[in-house]
Design a protein around this nucleic acid. Structure first.
Lengths: 354, 354
DNA sequence: CGCGGCTGTGGCACCGGTTCCACACCTCCG
DNA sequence: CGGAGGTGTGGAACCGGTGCCACAGCCGCG
């Protein structure tokens, strides 16, 4: 357990000089600096982050709150954040919590409230006012990536607009009987995002003067997983008479499940049913899924960059920044419609110009 | 920023008594304890883990090294570990590193070597001797879950035996033309696991006196992803003349990709081709995939329990423990053959009894 | 009654850094 | 030539806890 005093002794200087030499703050002659650095290397000195944090109040550690790690979108975000944080010399402490409850309160009131993280990034979590308050009240920035956070800066795509765009793609192809497989998320996580996508769907349908098909306005809720999409699609497609000719799924996972269900029901894809997803899943290309692509890995990087900037840490400036050097929380993150083979004009009916 | 001295003053006791009252170590009268606890609650006191770590040397934080977070298996393990650690009051610091290289060295030599974690769990990583040495040399336990670690305790399934079992299932069904889609893992991560599964396949084939079909002994390497399996299967199934009647895939993701490729080639499943996977992926049931099931989430819990025990932390004892109270690193973790609809007897040929 | 041992408490050093301040030295400029 | 200001260094306080040790009081036992 070598300490900085050992380094100092070996280099023949005081603790303070050793500290300055190693941290690069304050005046140290080049010769001294070199001696200290060499001494440190000799005895394999590694600074204790605890001691440093204790006095500086900075931990070089960011807490990440995320509802799932094994859903594609979240896994990508997490990887993007981890890489970026590591490059900046920061640690990532993971808090995986889906549901509200005592577990969640404990994370905010105990784990995150302690002086162990410099900032918090909440991914796809709908933060409560109290939760934001707990963190900000302790002087730490908290930002939301997706999800919602009253008061907290938020980095997100334009879910409503993108959902509208997806639906309009189906309309443009001439579909009139369109259904929406909406995300349910029993865990309430990111419920708002799903509500926004649903709203975007409704926007497009209303504007096209179309009523969604089926009961309950052609909207069936699905857990945002492949099996969830499968189950919901079976339900939606159960009665041949009321079947839609196209489906807008709230996520690519749901869309994959729906494709599977359609196959199971003997429906030809995309002839009998067009499907558009949402997310830009890494398997979308393989399955020919038309989708609204977003780039969660890049979003993870943006979120970290934003936090670094809030912490006054220098970063590369390859991402959205306002003139005053702060992250741009107003501009929505990028999405893109990627058309593949899963969407086509409805077969039996003539193409209707809109 | 309330400190323990504030609590002490408010409660009218000394710092040491306040510390004892709050930590529960040492003698404190019940009345005093209550006063201190109340005072702490009044001013919203939360202890600084940094200060405590500094003197005790314990951080209540475990470092997790994992090559991927968005592959199903690893995501599950991670979730299992996170839950268990959180319940034990520990933090999880995530290091996501796939490849060897300077990045990886930096994690071990800098991030993990500092006194910021009490232990390290390496999931699906092939640790080098030096890496194990770096951690253990600093007095911290390191355990491997899957992957390999020379010297480090290892928790793993019997990959070779399970792969053999999978192959035998195909043999039992009467298949004679069997191929193996082996895991390649360009990142070299978990290469050994993939080698073990390949060996198990070879074991079974040798014992059955069969030669794998196709070139290169009927083994095609695939990245352990759905697209990876798809590409490899296209290659394997490219020439109708040399097609196998059954495939053992080194992971369920590969198997899904292979199923997709077979469909694309117009092969009827499972009539023209039986496929067995490996892992027990959450989508296996939906796609009717026969597989060797393992329970990564539970494995994550086991790994954490094992580490907790090495750290002398009390845990529930619902998992494998040797008589001396230490984790049982010799007994392989559980696997189970789950037969679904993706494997059946070869169609065109008569069933051959073995 | 005396002493050992247990209980309860306070004082203080200490963990390993950072940072403020004092001080010495040098240089430059009026 | 003297003082202002920049450079280099050491001393010491401090961050916020923990834990050792001393000490006081009390009880029980021989």
């Amino acid at each position: 357990m070598t300490a900085i005093s050992d380094v100092a002794r070996l280099a023949g200087v005081s603790k303070s000089t050793a500290s300055r030499a190693l941290s690069g703050r304050g005046y140290v002659s080049e010769a001294t600096r070199r001696r200290v650095v060499e001494a440190a290397a000799d005895i394999g000195y590694i600074a204790s982050p605890n001691a440093a944090s204790l006095v500086t109040g900075r931990t070089k550690n960011v807490g990440v709150v995320i509802p799932f790690v094994n859903r594609w979108f979240f896994g990508e975000v997490l990887e993007g954040m981890e890489r970026t944080l590591l490059a900046a010399g920061y640690d990532l402490t993971l808090y995986n919590l889906a549901l509200a409850g005592p577990e969640r309160d404990r994370v905010f009131d105990f784990f995150l409230a302690r002086k162990r993280v410099d900032a918090v990034i909440a991914v796809g979590v709908d933060l409560t006012e109290r939760e934001v308050e707990v963190i900000e009240g302790r002087g730490k920035p908290i930002i939301a990536l997706g999800g919602t956070g009253p008061g907290a800066p938020r980095l997100a795509i334009d879910d409503r607009g993108a959902a509208r765009l997806a639906t309009e793609h189906l309309l443009d192809l001439g579909h009139e009987r369109i259904a929406h497989l909406a995300g349910a998320g029993a865990g309430s996580a990111a419920r708002s995002v799903q509500a926004l996508r649903r709203a975007g769907f409704a926007d497009a349908m209303r504007e096209a003067d179309l009523r969604p098909v089926g009961e309950s306005d052609g909207i069936v809720e699905a857990e945002m997983t492949v099996p969830g999409g499968y189950d919901a699609a079976l339900q939606l497609l159960g009665h041949p008479a009321t079947r839609p000719t196209a489906i807008f799924a709230a996520s690519d996972e749901i869309a994959f499940g729906a494709m599977r269900a359609a196959e199971r029901l003997g429906m030809a894809l995309p002839g009998a049913l067009s499907i558009i997803g949402f997310d830009g899943h890494e398997h979308a290309e393989l399955f020919g899924l038309t989708t609204i692509e977003q780039l969660p890995r890049v979003q993870g990087r943006y979120a970290v960059d934003a936090v670094m900037r809030l912490l006054g840490e220098p970063t590369g400036d390859a991402d959205p920044v306002t003139p005053d050097g702060l992250p741009d929380f107003d501009r929505p993150l990028e999405t893109r419609l990627v058309i593949r083979s899963s969407t086509t004009a409805p077969s039996a009916r003539p193409l209707v110009a809109r």
